[in-house]
């Protein structure tokens, strides 16, 4: 079964359409990337899937079930999102401990703090950070809390919006390894937005390239490695990444 199916999805904000006819399928256990121009609608697609924007037409199916934008069911046990902006997505007056244990409490899951400790360790934060507030942490530390929170409920599907762009490569490597491991162990599915093609190459099987609200191409990791895209814009992105290496 596919985890996500989007058919001819159009998404708008206050009647201004920003995503035009997007279609893609992400298989269960697959890791799929959305890349492309800034402002092209990548975050918008994730937000529509997880119910943060209901102004869309077309079809969204999650695990075979059609999503009805007017009757949202709670999908938080199935799917979790990590937002692009770790500053805005953490509650400023809640400690890390509260932020992480809250999803468990809400879903009536009993836990004596073991899972909080486990998830903090998994994202490379030691126990010193457990009772800190967001403003007492660096940008990358906050992002890791956001990732840990998304993992608390052991979702099947993770929507990740630039999960490692605030992180230096060493922490990024730890998080990417963790995501890859989770995928192997728990058959997790990822839909990941990133502007970083090497990250796609490491973590994803396929990628969709977006430009001006449209998906211009869906390609495989193999095409990415060889730089054999069909669309000029994808090729442009590839070329730009290729030139980038420590002098």
């Amino acid at each position: 079964m596919s985890a996500i199916e989007l058919n001819n999805l159009n998404i708008a904000y206050s009647s201004v359409q920003v995503v035009h006819g997007a279609s893609l399928t992400v298989e269960e256990g697959e890791s799929f990337a959305l890349v492309g121009e800034s402002g092209s609608g990548k975050s918008t697609i994730l937000k529509a899937i997880c119910g943060l924007n209901d102004e869309w037409t077309g079809e969204i199916k999650l695990y075979g079930e059609k999503v009805d934008p007017r009757k949202r069911a709670d999908i938080s046990r199935i799917s979790q999102m990590v937002f692009q902006d770790p500053y805005g997505s953490l509650h400023p007056r809640k400690t890390v401990d509260t932020t992480l244990s809250e999803p468990l409490t809400i879903h009536g899951i009993k836990d004596n703090g073991d899972r909080v400790v486990e998830m903090l360790n998994a994202v490379g934060l030691d126990q010193r950070y457990r009772f800190r507030f967001p403003h007492q942490m660096s940008g990358g530390q906050r992002q890791r809390v956001a990732i840990a929170r998304a993992l608390m409920l052991k979702p099947k599907l993770m929507l990740l919006d630039e999960p490692t762009s605030a992180l230096d490569v060493s922490v990024q490597a730890e998080i990417l390894n963790l995501l890859k491991q989770l995928r192997k162990d728990q058959n997790l599915t990822f839909l990941l937005v990133t502007h970083d093609l090497p990250v796609v190459s490491f973590l994803c099987d396929r990628l969709a390239v977006m430009k001006k609200g449209k998906i211009v191409e869906i390609a495989t990791r193999d095409q990415l490695a060889k730089g054999t895209f069909n669309e000029p814009y994808s090729q442009e992105l590839y070329q730009a990444s290729k030139h980038e290496h420590v002098a």
Binding site: D168, V169, S170, Q172, A173, E174, L176, N177, K180, L197, P198, V199, S201, F202, L224, A225, K226, G227, Y238, S241, K242, V246
Partner: peptide, 17 residues
């Protein structure tokens, strides 16, 4: 840091941390 960077044609199963 230099080693932990993924590459465009990444083949490593795990990145060195």
């Amino acid at each position: 840091l230099l080693n932990a960077m993924p590459r465009l044609d990444e083949t490593r199963d795990e990145l060195p941390t």
